[in-house]
Design a protein around this nucleic acid. Structure first.
Lengths: 328, 328
DNA sequence: ACTAATGATAGATAAAATCTATAACGAATT
DNA sequence: AATTCGTTATAGATTTTATCTATCATTAGT
């Protein structure tokens, strides 16, 4: 890998031109350089390679057998170089190639099925390499370059990241079929007083939202039985261990109301998750990411309008969270 | 093919190194250049391509999605370039690759079968692209670059050619089976007086040798029936139209004595064809050609000793031919 | 707050590419 | 035999490019 300083792409190009036109003068004319320059460059390459490429006579040149062999290789190099240029031109706008998208396990599996197809239709040469990571790792993973963008839950602390809010996702209350509130048409926040609430493990940002909500309504959180995923949480509700707040998209995707669970809204509480697309402010295709976020927002507002809330002003709760230090 | 001036092989190499080591400083250290040089070159390439390859942060770099895509192409270019270098190193000695060998139709088909295999054994990576040409075209074809070397009959006039004599080929007398001389054990030059002799068309150098020989021995040349090839000449002898002088290697290869023809030596005449390997004095692999000629000479003297004569001093006749102008 | 990383920048210097002018040589033409 | 034309090579000046040294600015970790 070290002996590349022996010759340059330009010299290869000159070499190929001389072989093609069979004359230094003619080739120099086509290359729009002078003949001495061309002669000098070819001679330099010959000296570097220790291979004579042409026989010079006073009436023109002959390509040597060695020259003919090397011409084939030279053309392959030039072709690859041309391909490189072409690809660079294609890529300069963004939207082409493989982008590494990080998602949280409590959102990704339930949102991506709705948006990947439309995105692919808009950008046929865009490939998304999706990786699930605990939300705490998403932000650092983005900062240190493991991801190109992430689809995550707010808040985002780092000032070197750009945040494009996508939508707000309400929380639903999940009840076992035989729960005392299971058949109530309307559940009020007062109904939850003293009701044991299950939650997901504290590594998820979601955890803290639930505990704060429970404090508000006076419901005890069952800390000894924290689920490791939304799915285990659901199973524990089915078994009658308590009720649980579940994200609306999870409920839509994984729970059919007719089965063992009832899913209900609670009047008088206003807890949502804020989801956003996030990327580094140093990214050279920032504007492409911005465009992508707009497209995702449109897709969601079209196909999931009944399940989510559009982005609006930051709530008091979120303001509070954003200013608290050490949240990560 | 014009936009190759946008970047250099060296820049590709730098780009690949930065991506590999994940740091400008580290890569610069490995490349044994300074970090500003490296930064400058990469930045220059980014500007030329209009694609940002890296995100720079104060703790290092991230390769952009575009950079990752282009890295693959860049590596392909570098690989081809490496292949070019490797091949050049192989070729520098000569003896590798395809060489264009011109031969005369009155020698090539009968000599080459004996020498191609041994040559191939000595030079497994040498390929000979053999083309038959009328001898008058061989010399000019060599001079103007259609051939790399030629296997031809002397004399050679051009001063810009190098001649390596290979062997001398005697001429044999071919007679029809029912010819009056057919059963003579020894044929003298005197026996040929008045005997009609067939010859090949005058485009072949061979023609003039025969007519001069016939003048000497007092045999008439049948000019109205000149064969277009040695094979037609043979057929005419079979039909009893006359006798003919045929090169020894042709006779060995194409005539079985038991058939319709008798092949005899004639005492008292000394006509041979001088064959040589010839190449341009400008050829950079002159020494390889010289070596090749020695090998051919050895092969011939080993396997065809009874049919040919080794090279020796120039005969009077040949001297005469060489000094005559306009032989071509 | 300090130290040790990182990459960027400015300016000087070294190296390489290019150009102009001309030489040298061969072939074709006068 | 002289002349002209077309070819590549060579020498030296000039422009362009690559490189280096020295330094800055910012960030992470102590």
């Amino acid at each position: 890998m070290d002996n590349l300083n022996e010759f340059s792409l330009r010299q290869l190009q000159y070499f190929a031109a001389v072989a093609e036109y069979g004359s230094f003068r003619q080739a120099a004319f086509r290359l729009e350089i002078t003949q001495p320059t061309l002669s000098h460059q070819v001679a330099t390459m010959e000296r570097a390679l220790k291979v004579q490429l042409f026989e010079r006579t006073r009436k023109g040149i002959n390509t040597t057998p060695q020259g003919r062999e090397l011409l084939l290789s030279a053309r392959r190099v030039l072709e690859e170089a041309q391909g490189f240029t072409t690809q660079a031109a294609l890529l300069s706008g963004g939207g082409i190639g493989t982008y590494r998208l990080g998602v949280t396990p409590t959102l990704g599996p339930y949102l991506l099925p709705h948006i990947l197809n439309p995105i692919h239709n808009n950008h046929v040469d865009l490939k998304l390499y999706v990786r699930e990571n605990p939300p705490s790792e998403l932000e650092t993973g983005l900062i240190n370059g493991q991801h190109d963008l992430i689809l995550t839950t707010l808040p985002i602390m780092s000032s070197e990241l750009i945040v494009a809010p996508l939508f707000r996702e309400p929380l639903k209350l999940a009840l076992a079929r035989d729960h005392r509130l299971a058949d109530r048409l309307i559940i009020n926040r007062g109904d939850l007083l003293g009701e044991p609430v299950l939650t997901i493990s504290e590594h998820h940002l979601f955890h803290r939202q639930i505990t704060e909500l429970c404090e508000e309504v006076g419901a005890p959180v069952l800390r000894d039985y924290e689920g490791t995923s939304l799915d285990t949480l659901r199973q524990m509700v089915v078994m009658g261990m308590g009720v649980a707040f579940l994200p609306a998209l999870y409920a839509k995707s994984e729970i059919r109301n007719e089965e063992e669970l009832r899913v209900a809204d609670v009047e008088g509480i206003n807890v949502v998750r804020n989801h956003a697309l996030v990327w580094r402010n140093t990214s050279p295709v920032s504007s492409f990411y911005k465009q992508l976020s707009e497209e995702i927002k449109t897709i969601i507002e079209t196909s999931l309008a009944s399940d989510i809330l559009p982005v609006n002003l930051t709530t008091n709760r979120e303001k509070l969270l954003k200013t608290k230090p050490k949240t990560n």
